[in-house]
Write a protein that binds this DNA or RNA. Structure first.
Lengths: 379, 379
DNA sequence: GAGTATTAGTGCGAATTCGAAATAAATGAC
DNA sequence: GTCATTTATTTCGAATTCGCACTAATACTC
């Protein structure tokens, strides 16, 4: 019989994260992952089972020796909400305690959306998810565009939503839903999604490329998001960039953002909803691979090559609308990097189109909620 | 009377680091810095005093309350060696237990130096330092050029020393001197020097700019060196770079390396020892600020602006020969960044010429030794 | 099928670390 | 000078975590 129940709540939270992510699935692997003695982990696991957060679901036989008793997070112990937005729309997902996506909602914003409208839309979607959820809501994560101060839980500023300045997003949602709320930048939240739901599971160093209306990157180094002192890291879109023949100078997002790519591929189309542009572009692309295509490849190659030289990272994940150009696009960019940058000729460069869909941001926000959660004080 | 002496050696090491760096100078501040209970820290400090690593050196009165009992590392408890080299010369310094630089030695290498010669020179210098040192040698740090694998303690490769490939540097020195040896890349070691001896004392995020024969950067993020998956992060010199009017393309180091800068400033001089070039350049520079100067400023501005957009770091430290261009150079670069890059117009950008001298690398290597040290098992 | 090897998990005394109260050493008010 | 106030450090019992021996559960060998 166990002596005393331990009540180190942050360690309980860390244990749950390891189990949920699959990095550990038994007492013994958990002990290694957490760096604790097996006997201590036994105590913690007892506590988690007693509180209904974890379940024993069977045995797992290794090549030799006593099989592991498989541990899994209890699906119904509660759920997490993730919400992500930009000037155009709000998306929200719910994720159960075991980390499975359960439901999703989204809502287009009017063209003149201001801070008030946006906050209202966020709350409406979250309330909608709450209606059909089972178990208690445990935490909320939010991915906001522009500069975000995660420490204060504040959206500092964003140009494309009227009066979006120092918005106390976390506080506002915490008041309404009475659970912990964590806030992070849009694109950085996608990097979390990649870790929890995408190809970044086992990676500690990777870079997310986010060509949308601008061009940003999210950098993960040593398993940690790189935010920058003023929460403004990754603003690569503002790099000076030599444009084509005619115009001598500009900024990188003028050449590499999603609209810029569509414009080049499909001819000059006015700013419109992206999905339509996308279809047009794809038609043209499958037929011809002209100079526009080559120019895009070489621009991306140059940008990614620069990043690789600087970060020497394991993998690049391509996100956003441009992802629809697919594996072929990525492969050609890799080839172009190797061909044009001598220092990277032999580089084991990996660029992959994200396997996450349209709601990567919301999923990432939910990941934020999962990562922040620790079991409440159990009486 | 204290109950039992605690023997958690890595924590003792961490405590010494805090005391040596000045981040903590009493039991109470140490407790905060280490995140331990005051009572626990008391135990550790007793142990460190008993072992002769730490001394009580007086009182420090705050505005109110009982004064702190000032703790300091014992100067004579032993010493650390740092050695750094490139194809041209080897430099070594000794640092006492309190982190004060004691002595330095250096040695020019012959033009045809190979791995054997270099290793021999390193050992000779270290032996020379050993002769005049007081107390036992505790650890050695080494800064090696090119790609270095710190985990294995191996110099992977470097083009400018014959047969420098997979050199087991750490093992070789450990055999000869019988103390722990830590190895790291040249420029990253300079970043450590900046933290221990320079302007990086209180910074967790900064970038070291190292224009020497090439152009590399060392990135510190969250107090941690950024190495990259293949230990090749920071190779910015290989960025594609648009050159002047005539030549359309090249690499960044063709424009920004120290030789390139001198060539532009002083006219085409053949590759020679830098200090001479430097003097020539300085004479020209104080007289005229022509197009060559402007070109250098704008190139540096562009490169640093790109880094700032990506990292959003606190400070850039300029190292190497170019440092001699001084405050004025840095100030002009800052101005140029603000003027030419709209996104950084308001940026609190800081670029400072390193205050460390010529042996920054060796000092950084000694820092590596200091950081790696933990008290040996005390009977 | 008993014995051996191997890995997983538990029990329990020992070691470490904590927390809260006690003590120490200063300042300032009266 | 005495006393309240503030901050630093220590004391000491309590809580946590560890280490190690032990038990458990499997495969393989003979």
């Amino acid at each position: 019989m166990r002596t005393s129940p331990a009540i180190q709540h942050d360690l309980l939270g860390a244990a749950v994260l390891h189990l949920r992510s699959g990095r550990a699935a038994s007492r013994s692997t958990l002990a290694v992952a957490l760096g604790l003695a097996p006997s201590t982990v036994g105590l913690y696991v007892d506590q988690l089972i007693a509180d209904g957060y974890v379940d024993e679901s069977g045995l797992e036989q290794g090549p030799l020796g006593r099989p592991k008793r498989r541990l899994a997070t209890q699906r119904t112990a509660g759920w997490f909400a993730g919400v992500e937005f930009n000037a155009e729309r709000v998306q929200a997902v719910s994720v159960d305690f075991s980390g499975q996506r359960v439901a999703a909602l989204s809502k287009w914003l009017p063209d003149d959306a201001d801070t008030r409208t946006v906050l209202h839309a966020i709350k409406t979607l979250l309330a909608g998810l709450e209606k059909n959820a089972q178990g208690p809501l445990l935490a909320i994560g939010a991915g906001a565009p522009g500069v975000v101060d995660p420490r204060a839980g504040v959206g500092a500023h964003y140009a494309f939503i009227a009066d979006w300045r120092n918005v106390p997003l976390a506080e506002s949602l915490r008041e309404r839903f009475e659970v912990p709320v964590t806030v992070e930048n849009n694109l950085r939240v996608i990097a979390l999604a990649e870790r929890w739901f995408g190809g970044g599971r086992d990676l500690d160093d990777y870079v997310v490329l986010g060509p949308r209306s601008g061009f940003g990157v999210a950098i993960v180094h040593g398993g940690q998001l790189m935010r920058g002192v003023h929460f403004a890291a990754g603003e690569m879109g503002r790099w000076p960039w030599a444009m084509g023949e005619g115009r001598p100078a500009g900024e990188l997002h003028d050449a590499l953002s999603a609209p810029a790519v569509w414009r080049k591929l499909a001819g000059a189309t006015p700013r419109a909803r992206l999905p339509e542009d996308l279809r047009v572009a794809l038609v043209k692309f499958t037929d011809a691979t002209g100079t526009a295509w080559d120019e895009i490849i070489s621009d991306y190659a140059k940008a990614i090559g620069c990043l690789q030289l600087l970060f020497d990272t394991e993998c690049f994940f391509l996100h956003g609308p441009v992802t629809s150009l697919g594996e072929r696009f990525c492969a050609e960019v890799v080839a172009a990097v190797r061909a044009t940058m001598p220092a990277l000729a032999e580089s084991p460069l990996r660029i992959v189109p994200s396997a996450l869909g349209d709601d990567a941001g919301a999923l990432g926000a939910a990941s934020l909620a999962m990562e922040s959660w620790v079991p409440a004080f159990a009486q």
